[in-house]
Design a protein around this nucleic acid. Structure first.
Length: 515
RNA sequence: GGCCCCUUCGUCUAGCGGUCUAGGACACUGCCCUUUCACGGCGGCAACACGGGUUCGAGUCCCGUAGGGGUCACCA
């Protein structure tokens, strides 16, 4: 039985790269009927763990990645908060100490700092020389009499090599002698991540540790811990990290200002911001940006589109197939087709996937997705969203790439429309007879008493053109600007029918009167 | 700097010694469709980092070089 885990620390947000790592873990578990565990690595976290965890859990729920054990659902290996497992970690540290794989060390922070400075001065790299190691109780007592407090350090082998069998990278060899005697237990008795993580992974019976490659350099150390404790080794798979847009460095939440210089990233962000602002959502938070998964949820992305895009960041089925449902991902995913090189995050491709995913949804679903945005923007009320609203979503078709794009069609909902300056100049001001035609058309439409639907509005405008000896294009552009305020939109007659004759007539006259 | 990892179009990738004058997708772009925009259709531009081997034959295997990146805490 495959058991995988994702172990976030409660930071208050879900990073897009983290989602990719979690996705691969989740896929691996789901495809084999295995289990996916969420463990919270809050060893060093501050007080508001619950608060900082919630956005992460919400993110998982939204994305549809369910966990078999962890927060909220519990499980047979409780607790799933690392901070609550400290007894286990301390017992492991004691065991390592007893077996001689670790030692008590009495170097103070100042001592260490001095040693580092010294090494630096000589142009050497710092390598702890066990100077304050207590070989036995007598030595320990002596140090303690001086008021020193012990940390516990790993006693790493000084010869030989560690061979990591990585499912993605193959054999990775590391000389033991290059490994430091890492601290595993602090002077205050609490344990360090490497120890805690290794112990917890074993205790939770994790079979496959799938994580980002920044953990690769730590792996030898963890293998040493696991082996010294007599534990069986899990399988390791180190994923390439997700790189920044048009770059090769690791994608980081801290380098936003740099990414904003990337045109595509900046466009996505400002597009999202404009949707959120019109809905009255908070956009100043530093979590409102395309590196954080919340951003996408807030502006109406599809969870499946994000998953589809992310699964292709470092993995492929065959180089041809790109669109996967979640079930297909589960069926086809495999670690041996994961790439070794980092994949850079491409906002444009994500957007393209999202557009396709949204277009594939039924009209009913698209209406349901768009409605909350129109409500939040004050365009409609929950109750009033009837036929007309569905017709707008339908008419807009694939012009809506994400649910929040419904806000682009604000002219259907507002009483006063704003004219785009350029469009107004070109289609109403510049043509000599545009105003005259608009007024005439308004009169003509008004004189007709039949139902004003798509077909009827088309027939009427065409008849008008015949009467005036003009072509459709001679009036339609002016009519569009007059009725919508913009030069671009969907089918003119669908637009007119949704607006209704009264508004079309009134807006035509308004536009003609405006200077 | 030490250790480790990586290297095919701008980007995501296919390629597991001959079928590669290197395929697909996004982006860009030309034409067509068209009441605008979007969609769609048909084209186009564009890559094996470099140098040595091995081999009849190398994008594919080996070794170097260069470049990029990760990591080096009593953080996770």
């Amino acid at each position: 039985m495959i058991r995988t885990r994702f172990a976030p620390s409660p930071t208050g947000y879900l990073h897009i790269g983290g989602v990719r790592t979690a996705l691969f873990n989740w896929l691996l578990a789901r495809q084999s009927g295995g289990q996916f565990i969420l463990r919270i690595d809050d060893t060093d976290a501050g007080r508001n763990v619950a608060e900082a965890l919630q956005p992460i859990l919400d993110g998982f729920k939204w994305l549809g990645m369910d966990w078999d054990e962890g927060p909220e659902v519990g499980g047979p290996h409780e607790p799933y908060y690392q901070s609550q497992r400290s007894e286990l970690h301390q017992a492991a540290a004691a065991k390592l100490l007893a077996s001689g794989h670790a030692y008590r060390d009495y170097a103070s922070a100042d001592d260490l700092q001095a040693l580092r400075t010294e090494a630096e001065k000589k142009g050497e790299r710092f390598f702890y020389d066990r100077r304050f190691m207590a070989e036995d109780d007598a030595a320990a007592a002596k140090y303690e009499a001086e008021g020193r407090v012990a940390t516990i350090r790993l006693k790493m082998p000084r010869e030989g090599e560690c061979v990591i069998n990585d499912l993605i990278r193959g054999e990775v060899r590391v000389q033991w002698a290059t490994e430091q005697d890492h601290v595993i237990q602090r002077a205050d008795g609490s344990c360090i991540y490497h120890l805690a993580s290794a112990v917890d992974d074993h205790d939770l019976q994790i079979t496959h540790i799938v994580r980002a490659e920044e953990h690769l350099p730590n792996t030898a150390r963890q293998i040493f811990i696991l082996e010294s404790l007599g534990y069986e080794l899990p399988q390791f798979a180190h994923l390439p990290y997700v790189a920044e847009p048009s770059g090769t460095a690791k994608l980081s939440k801290r380098k936003l200002s740099k990414y904003e210089k990337n045109k595509d990233f900046a466009n996505l962000l400002s597009h999202g911001r404009s949707i959120a602002e019109r809905c009255g959502f908070e956009t100043s938070a530093d979590t409102f940006n395309p590196v954080i998964v919340d951003f996408y949820r807030e502006i109406g992305f599809d969870a499946d589109a994000i998953l589809n895009y992310l699964v292709l960041l470092g993995w492929s089925l065959d180089g041809e197939t790109e669109k996967f449902t979640v079930d297909e991902m589960i069926k086809h995913f495999s670690l041996d087709r994961v790439n070794k090189a980092p994949a850079s995050f491409d906002p444009q491709k994500l957007l393209s996937f999202q557009g396709d995913a949204f277009a594939a949804l039924s009209l009913e679903t698209r209406v349901d997705r768009c409605r909350p945005f129109a409500v939040a923007a004050g365009f409609i009320t929950e109750e009033a969203a009837g036929q007309n609203f569905a017709a707008i979503v339908d008419g807009a078709g694939d012009r809506i790439k994400m649910a929040g794009d419904i806000l682009d069609f604000d002219y259907f909902f507002k009483d006063d429309i704003a004219y785009e300056e350029k469009a107004f100049q070109k289609r109403i001001n510049k043509p000599e007879n545009a105003r005259e035609l608009l007024v005439k058309l308004a009169d003509f439409l008004e004189s007709d008493s039949s139902d004003f639907d798509v077909d009827r509005s088309k027939a009427l405008v065409e008849e008008f053109c015949t009467n005036e000896s003009i072509e459709l294009k001679d009036i339609i552009h002016a009519l569009r600007v007059a009725t919508t305020g913009t030069a671009a939109g969907f089918g003119m007659f669908e637009t007119l029918a949704i607006l209704g004759k009264d508004k079309v007539v009134a807006r035509s006259r308004d536009a003609a009167a405006k200077r």
